[in-house]
């Protein structure tokens, strides 16, 4: 059977790649894609831990379901914001929008 560490490695790789994307990309959609990658990494982690450490329980699965729901919500709101921002500023480049500047 595939060791848990393999899953964790894949997950870590996805997470790091997603983090890089979220940090380095210009486009807001691309940042969102990066974030989705990180969510997936977390999801994979959760499922892997459930399967290997506690297959009789429900915690891991429920955790995964909640992550799914949060991801869906996040993406919906994020994209809505994206569209609204695009309408208002005519651009969706995250580094050009600095309204929160102190």
């Amino acid at each position: 059977m595939i060791p848990l560490g393999a899953y964790l490695m894949v997950s870590a790789a996805l997470f790091v790649i997603g983090a890089f994307g979220a940090l380095a990309r210009k486009s807001a959609v691309a940042i969102l894609i990066g974030l989705e990658l990180m969510f997936n990494a977390a999801l994979l982690n959760a499922v892997a831990f459930w399967r290997y450490l506690h297959p009789q329980g429900f915690d891991g699965t429920v955790f995964a379901i909640v992550i799914l729901a949060v991801a869906a919500a996040e993406v919906a709101v994020g994209l809505a914001l994206f569209i609204a921002v695009y309408r208002r500023f005519g651009t969706a480049e995250a580094d050009e929008i600095a309204l929160l500047r102190g």
Binding site: P3, G5, A12, Y52, P55
Partner: peptide
Amino acid sequence: LLFWIAHWPAADGKAKS
């Protein structure tokens, strides 16, 4: 992360059931 996974004892474990 890699360091952490590598040093984690449970990382190469099998499924219990």
